[in-house]
Design a protein around this nucleic acid. Structure first.
Length: 274
DNA sequence: AGTCGCCTGGTA
DNA sequence: TACCAGGCGACT
């Protein structure tokens, strides 16, 4: 579900609520959610730790705790991290609850059970799946860095920018939006892009992500922030989810095709394959 | 490089 | 009933 703007919005909502709080107890319902270490160690080790920092890396939520460890969470398709109180009744799909000493709690809630949580030493990022191999942050990378990341790649451009090792944090919605702004067909081969195409795409990626953050994320289905509040970027999408509707630029019908196994929305007139 | 599995639920 | 879903990793 959540891509960079959604995860950033969640992090910003959680940061003031949990920073400085100490963990009193941990409950894990569905154990496969815990990717590292084993469930018992995960729960036992978290107790007594204090939250020092809450930040984002790509689509990962990183909670730094005392003792030099990181509580790393990936929400995958439909996961939510919700800050609430022990008084509030739990949703049926609540898989992990982290109780703080003041009666508040952080809940990992997810219908589809794809998401994962890891408690890792900051010095061992490879213990948290793809966390260690993430590419640069798109809002912090230079144009030259972006060009270097895609240099020599011959794949279709959409799967390339969805690859978290190339650039961290772009998902299906913002990929389609960035390609539309760039007037690039999702199946365009990366090694056929001109210098101008690359520069346009670089700016489009930053544009759609920044707008997404300003609008507090895209709530098409499941996404909500740390307080359970929906975003409003779904009201500003230019192509994603608009198949069979008219292109805002030229009136042509927006198409939806599969590219690299993912639904891809584009305007065949504005985004020719060439 | 491309496909499949993981899960559950909403909608056509 | 069938298809679809903001993702990723394992597999071929």
């Amino acid at each position: 579900m959540p891509e960079l703007p959604e995860v950033e919005t969640i992090v910003r909502s959680l940061r003031p609520m949990i920073t400085g709080k100490r963990v009193e107890s941990v409950e894990v319902g569905y154990t496969p959610i815990i990717g590292y270490p084993d469930v018992e160690t995960f729960a036992a080790e978290l107790i007594g730790r204090e939250v020092e920092q809450v930040r984002r890396r790509g689509k990962y939520i990183v909670i730094e705790v005392t003792g030099g460890d990181l509580l790393v969470t990936h929400l995958r398709m439909s996961g939510r991290l919700i800050f609430t109180s022990s008084e509030i009744e739990k949703d049926k799909h609540t898989h992990v609850v982290i109780n703080f000493e003041d009666g508040t709690q952080l809940r990992f809630v997810e219908i589809r059970k794809f998401g994962r949580m890891f408690l890792i030493p900051a010095s061992d990022p490879e213990k948290a799946g793809g966390f260690a191999t993430l590419g640069p942050e798109p809002l912090e990378m230079s144009l030259e860095e972006f060009k270097a990341q895609i240099a020599g790649k011959k794949t279709k451009i959409k799967p390339l920018i969805l690859n978290q090792e190339i650039v961290a944090g772009i998902g299906n919605i913002y990929a389609d939006e960035a390609l539309f702004l760039s007037k690039l067909h999702p199946e365009r081969l990366a090694d056929t892009l001109s210098e101008e195409d690359k520069e346009t795409l670089y700016h489009a990626i930053q544009q759609v992500l920044t707008t997404g953050i300003q609008n507090r994320g895209t709530s098409k289905r499941d996404y909500v922030d740390g307080f359970g509040m929906a975003g409003e970027n779904q009201n500003h999408l230019k192509v994603y989810g608009r198949e069979k509707e008219k292109c805002y630029l030229c009136g042509t019908e927006i198409l939806r095709i599969q590219v690299g196994g993912r639904s891809s929305h584009f305007c065949p007139n504005c985004q020719p394959l060439r």
